[in-house]
Nucleic acid binder design. Structure first.
Lengths: 120, 120
DNA sequence: TTAATAGGTTTCCAAATGGTAACTAGTTAC
DNA sequence: GTAACTAGTTACCATTTGGAAACCTATTAA
């Protein structure tokens, strides 16, 4: 018996992979934060700066999201020797691997808006 | 004053586009259902069939997700003339536009698993 | 001494999400 | 008549998620 192109095992494997991605990058904020850190790579992005510029995020949620991203090696945290103490968050090489995904999300969203305008 | 490549307005626009995408396709089930309907395009996918094969989804949640997908024109619903009545759900042309996004999600998830195995 | 800034933590609360199980309605097979 | 199948709906409940506001520690400036 030869496996078909999209037989159940492959399909399940794909579904599990998608679930992994959604678990790690899903939710309201993570991809927005990654997008922010990627586009502002050349700046020093401190906790307060991120909180000010990723509109609407609270300190509590930002703390949690950054910790999650750090655990998954998508973001690096460094305490700087400043007074008052500041902490810099940087995208990692690995974090940059989400670029294509983010590009697709942005593209799809813009296209969807366009599509919805047309279909009225 | 010339705009930079990733100036704040563009950045916000991208963020909003991403939010739109996540609103429509985000959550635990929608992309899994779309993936299922895309890979099984040549079969007749009824409510019960989908419920059996998208593992773990309940009738209540499946009903809601399919309705949402229908409203956004990603899925088509058709009541067939069978006894007992069956209902077929099909991916639309527009629904197929999520293919690249899904591909990225699958790819990223598989890559992530590989990466995590390596870094131990 | 008081206020302000940075980077959080903690508490309390509300809404969204999702799950189980029971139930409905129409139809058919036994 | 009774059970089974399809396609849901409904009620109830638990978990997750996220938000607001107060609080904490350290440091500096007025």
């Amino acid at each position: 018996m030869k496996a078909l192109k999209n037989d159940p095992p492959t399909c399940t494997e794909n579904l599990l992979a998608m679930r992994d991605t959604l678990d790690i990058l899903g939710g309201k904020w993570k991809l927005l934060i990654l997008h922010y850190l990627i586009t502002r790579e050349k700046e020093v992005n401190t906790f307060k700066k991120i909180q000010r510029e990723v509109l609407g995020i609270s300190a509590k949620v930002l703390t949690k999201e950054l910790k999650d991203l750090e655990v998954n090696m998508l973001v690096e945290r460094e305490e700087l020797n400043t007074k008052p103490k500041t902490v810099e968050y940087r995208i990692t090489d690995y974090g940059r691997s989400s670029k294509d995904l983010i590009k697709q999300l942005v593209y799809w969203g813009k296209n969807h808006r366009y599509k919805m305008l047309q279909s009225k």
